[in-house]
Computed example of a mutant assay.
Amino acid sequence: MFALELTADLTGVTNLRPVDTQEDPYYYSFRVQCTSCREVHDKWVDFDRFTTTDISKSRGEANFVYKCQNCTRESSATIKTAPKAYMAASPPTKQVIIEFECRGCELTEFRVSDKWVAEGVSGTVFNEVDLAEDWYDYDEKPGEEVSVKEVGWAIRRA
């Protein structure tokens, strides 16, 4: 099992999470390494939690299935939980956003993609939070700036 952890400095917002519904899935983007030969896949791989692929020579299925180009071993990754919201904390703390079960591969690096949503402490919903860089907006209800800064990602064995 692998867990994707987020650390961020939230000001005026909380409940930060990816937009991830069956109608509008979030595509999780990773660098993947084969656990057999240690070859790192040469491209970023993107997969969502609603699409599955059959695993060959098995009755199972996974959200991501690939065959290593170096050793030809088949590997897979399955999203085990729905994404959890990152809650504001002072000081910012690492919080698990989502968990993956990997067989024959390791997730080594995460790249943020798509949009995230956050809720202002006033109740205002911000639907277009872009975590590729620091994000700033204005919450008209309290008349204050809101932000998500110093975003950090970590992948750890769970």
Rank of each mutant, 00 (worst) to 15 (best):
K80S: 15
F64G: 10
E39I: 00
S75F: 14
P92A: 11
S122R: 10
D134V: 04
K115Q: 10
V148E: 08
Y28G: 00
L4W: 05
A132C: 09
I55N: 12
E39L: 03
C71R: 13
E101I: 04
T124L: 06
A3E: 11
K43N: 06
Y86L: 13
D137H: 03
Q95A: 08
D24G: 01
K149D: 14
C68D: 11
S76L: 14
R59C: 08
L4D: 01
P83N: 14
N63A: 05
T108I: 04
E145Y: 12
K80L: 15
G60Y: 11
N70Y: 14
S113G: 09
S122N: 12
N127Q: 08
G143Y: 10
E144G: 07
P18E: 10
M87H: 14
N127T: 05
S122H: 09
K43L: 05
E99D: 07
T7V: 12
V146C: 09
D130S: 04
N70M: 15
T35M: 03
R38W: 01
V125P: 01
E106P: 00
V129S: 01
L6D: 09
L10M: 10
R156H: 13
L6K: 01
R17I: 12
F110L: 03
S122C: 14
T35E: 06
T7A: 11
Y27L: 11
T51N: 13
T52P: 07
T51M: 09
A77N: 08
H41T: 02
F126T: 01
W135Y: 08
A89R: 06
N15C: 11
A132Y: 03
E106W: 00
V19L: 13
R17V: 14
W44K: 01
I98A: 01
E61M: 11
F64Q: 03
S76G: 15
T72V: 15
R73L: 15
T81F: 13
P25G: 03
Y27K: 03
A82N: 15
R49N: 04
S58F: 15
C34R: 01
R38H: 02
L10R: 05
P25I: 12
S29Q: 09
K84P: 04
Q95R: 01
K141F: 12
A85V: 15
S75W: 12
K94D: 05
N63K: 04
V65A: 10
Y26N: 03
L16P: 02
A8M: 04
E61Q: 14
P142H: 03
N70G: 11
Q69C: 14
F110Y: 05
E106N: 05
Q95V: 07
T52M: 13
R156S: 12
V19M: 11
K67W: 06
S29Y: 02
A82K: 15
C68I: 13
P142Q: 05
E128A: 11
T7G: 06
Q22K: 05
N15F: 12
C37E: 02
K80C: 11
E145Q: 13
F64D: 05
D139E: 06
A132K: 04
S113H: 03
T11Q: 09
E99M: 06
E145F: 14
D9L: 13
L131Q: 01
E99Y: 02
Q69M: 14
N63Q: 09
R103D: 11
L107N: 00
Y138I: 07
D137A: 10
D54V: 13
Q22F: 10
T81K: 07
